[in-house]
Design a protein around this nucleic acid. Structure first.
Lengths: 257, 257
DNA sequence: ACTGATTCTTTATGCCGTAAAGTATCGACC
DNA sequence: GGTCGATACTTTACGGCATAAAGAATCAGT
């Protein structure tokens, strides 16, 4: 499932995101649930089952039917938006700049990466139509604040903010989704790769000759840290190297006139 | 829907991807369809409806029922894999290096970006468990070949290849999915933004004060090219700027020891 | 005690992917 | 030339999904 932000009534969605529910005393039975409780349950379920979680599952976790949720939340899309923004609230809203922008950006990226790894389903929320919630704003504001300290103009920084965001999301996806997929099918990542590469080599024995550069790329390796799973190790190394290159590029832009 | 590569029998999937069906004369009625025809139809439908296309829709386009497809393809996941790899076949498999690696990478990125924009659903195929088809390999081989010419070692290039990939995917998503969402709901992107930002400013009037850096970031703009839709213009500028920074970073790595 | 708003459940609708079973069509062999 | 078994495709059916619609239970204000 791909989730596009708030396809329903924009006012209702944005009010939910920014104000939360205003609860005055009203006639009728006391609410047994709350938007917050539902969002929390939704996150818990999505952490376990991925973005394909069902309204039934969320309801069940709260001891209700799926339909009970619709009293508090207009639909699944809006719930996902709320879950997304709540997740962003886990992240710091500002970073120390004493040692300069570079370690601050690095820290921002690491925090983000870890958050994505805790909640892989977040990576499935469309970037195209942002959720526009307060915490998403805050997270981006934090990055923007760091980068502003470079003195680069805003129109240049937009592309850079994008690049950092894309990079972290992409890097997190390679590992976070792999973990999620492993969890869903019960097939660990290592096994998945093992099964596939064996068949691939059997069917296409001269793979290395057909794609020589890829072969070099894949096989130029340092000794592997055995404390980490193979793929995770790989992903972390690529994350660090890629981020370093990206930051070098920013440094170049800062140094230039 | 998120699609993880080939959850079924790995051998069957990989054979379909690499060999195509081996058709010897057999008893029974002549096949009226083919894997190729189904993949083409699938791509056409997905281009229109996004990743949430249905097997029924693909079948209908071919004048068959959904179940007829299962004669040729084990399931929807495998079909998506085939569609993905076929889409990658649209891209060049090598790039001229006469002017150096930088214009070549730029061209690769542009081709990729355009391909993603033609087929936005491709961005929903998980990167974590690659499809492992011949054309996906070829596309990555093309990028690896360009970057090898920098002389950088493979273990450094892995992170760089990743970073470029993530960047292009991310940048393409901001615009491609926006278009797709607009198409699906019939609500153009401009209108979507207009409706949302109006409500947002109404509910949170001092947004600019709460997120001052974002405000600067968003409002430091050159005069806008009126021949392009606003968002598209923005996305293209960010793509160019971001890619430039990334390539500068690679240049730095090349220049170093 | 009654009214009307509110919470939550029940039921039902229309999608989805696909399993299972049935029908029609063909090649190969007797 | 008739039969057998494999193949292509359709029909039907199942369980799952989001959610619309209607009903039951609960409470505040009159």
């Amino acid at each position: 499932m791909v989730v596009y932000a708030g396809q329903g009534d924009p006012r209702r969605s944005i009010e939910l995101l920014w104000r939360g529910p205003v609860t005055e005393p009203r006639p009728g039975p006391k609410p047994g649930l709350s938007v917050d409780a539902i969002v929390d349950a939704g996150i818990a379920v999505a952490d376990e089952q991925g973005m394909a979680f069902s309204m039934r599952a969320v309801g069940e976790r709260l001891g209700r039917t799926a339909m009970a949720l619709y009293t508090y939340v207009p639909g699944k899309n809006e719930l996902v938006d709320l879950m997304y923004d709540r997740t962003m609230a886990e992240l710091p809203t500002s970073y120390a700049l004493e040692d300069g922008w570079r370690p601050a950006v690095t820290q921002w990226a690491s925090d983000m990466w870890e958050c994505y790894c805790r909640h892989p389903w977040v990576l499935q929320v469309s970037q195209a139509r942002p959720v526009l919630g307060p915490h998403e704003f805050a997270v981006t504001e934090a990055l923007a604040a760091i980068l502003m300290s470079t003195g680069l103009p805003g129109r240049e920084l937009r592309g850079i903010v994008g690049a950092i965001n894309y990079f972290v999301r992409g890097a997190a996806q390679t590992i976070a989704e792999a973990r999620a997929a492993g969890g869903a099918t019960g097939e660990a990542d290592e096994e998945w790769w093992y099964a596939r590469s064996a068949v691939l080599l059997e069917i296409e024995p001269d793979l290395a000759k057909k794609f020589p550069m890829l072969h070099v790329l894949e096989n130029d390796r340092e000794p592997i840290d055995p404390s980490l799973p193979y793929l995770e190790n790989d992903a972390l190394e690529n994350f660090r190297n890629g981020l370093r290159v990206l930051l070098d590029g920013i440094e170049g832009a800062v140094a230039k006139p």
